[in-house]
């Protein structure tokens, strides 16, 4: 027993040592964000620079929150990300189910189509996308972002979901149908509950992608009250005569928190969700 414990402890030390360089690089920007965000304004440009501030100015966060209208941007980002995720799942789940369960003529061409959409990124299409949004009359509207984020996330969502759906035994919903359940009942009562981990992981991917998207939001949104978080933070840096670095860092840190929490919470499920990816 004791030797076994020792072995694991030894291994742990080795593992942490091996990971330490990359962990340093990962933690570094967070440390920069944190320590810059609590510095008094005049210390931000002190030379030579130091990590620790002379005093921790938590007030910076309150000032930043007001000066940057952070709550508006937060609400916009939440609205866009949740709506885009919802729509993506709404259309991707049935499609993934069809691809995982049925053989049909258009199947391989549909897969190809999805692969092509996967290859395109908003930056490459930005000129055309802008015209589409104008045509819809949705310029400066966060709803245009919802629609487009959903469209761009479909391919990946379907691909993830169908890989996972493959691993759910077919007999389960089939036996439900044999027992007289309707098609929908079989799906919602038997199949979907089994698929919840995969759906959660897919949802998270879509959410993160929407949460972090930059180029389109920059092109489409016009007025500050419609800005999403990345745009709001970027606007504190781009084309300004003075940059309030302590506010920028505070905003960036707070903006990263929701996604970071989501990750630590779903980290285990994420791996199992993707692990089925090899099944072709």
């Amino acid at each position: 027993m004791l030797t076994k414990m020792n072995k694991k402890t030894k291994r742990s030390i080795f593992c942490w040592l091996a990971l330490s360089p990359i962990i340093c690089v990962i933690v570094f920007p967070f440390a920069v964000m944190f320590f810059t965000s609590v510095k008094p304004r005049q210390e931000v440009f002190s030379f030579p620079p130091t990590w620790l501030p002379s005093q921790f100015v938590w007030q910076n966060y309150i000032d930043m929150w007001q000066a940057t209208k952070f709550s508006d941007a937060l609400i916009n980002s939440l609205y866009v990300s949740f709506s885009a995720t919802f729509i993506t799942l709404l259309v991707a789940i049935p499609a993934a189910y069809a691809l995982a369960r049925y053989h049909f003529a258009a199947k391989s061409s549909y897969r190809l189509f999805l692969l092509i959409t996967q290859m395109l990124s908003p930056i490459v299409l930005v000129i055309g996308l802008f015209r589409l949004i104008v045509w819809l009359g949705l310029i400066d509207s966060v709803n245009s972002l919802v629609l487009i984020y959903a469209g761009f996330n479909i391919a990946f969502a379907i691909w993830m979901l169908q890989n996972y759906f493959h691993t759910i035994p077919k007999d389960l919903e089939e036996s439900a149908w044999m027992e007289g359940a309707s098609f929908l009942q079989g799906l919602t009562k038997v199949f979907l509950p089994m698929a919840i981990p995969a759906i959660a992981v897919t949802a998270m991917f879509t959410f993160i992608n929407s949460w972090n998207e930059f180029v389109l939001a920059l092109t489409v949104l016009r007025t500050e009250e419609n800005y999403t978080l990345p745009i709001q933070v970027y606007s504190l840096v781009g084309g300004r005569y003075t940059i309030e670095w302590h506010h920028v860092m505070a905003a960036a840190l707070v903006a990263s928190l929701p996604a970071a929490i989501l990750f630590s919470w779903l980290q285990k499920k994420l791996v199992t969700g993707l692990s089925s990816g090899a099944v072709k």
Binding site: F130, I139, T219
Partner: peptide, 21 residues
Amino acid sequence: IEVVNWDVLNQKLTTDISSDV
């Protein structure tokens, strides 16, 4: 009033004009 940062101002104006908005 719509306030726009300098680094994206010309881009926004031209894309807006191109689409008549």
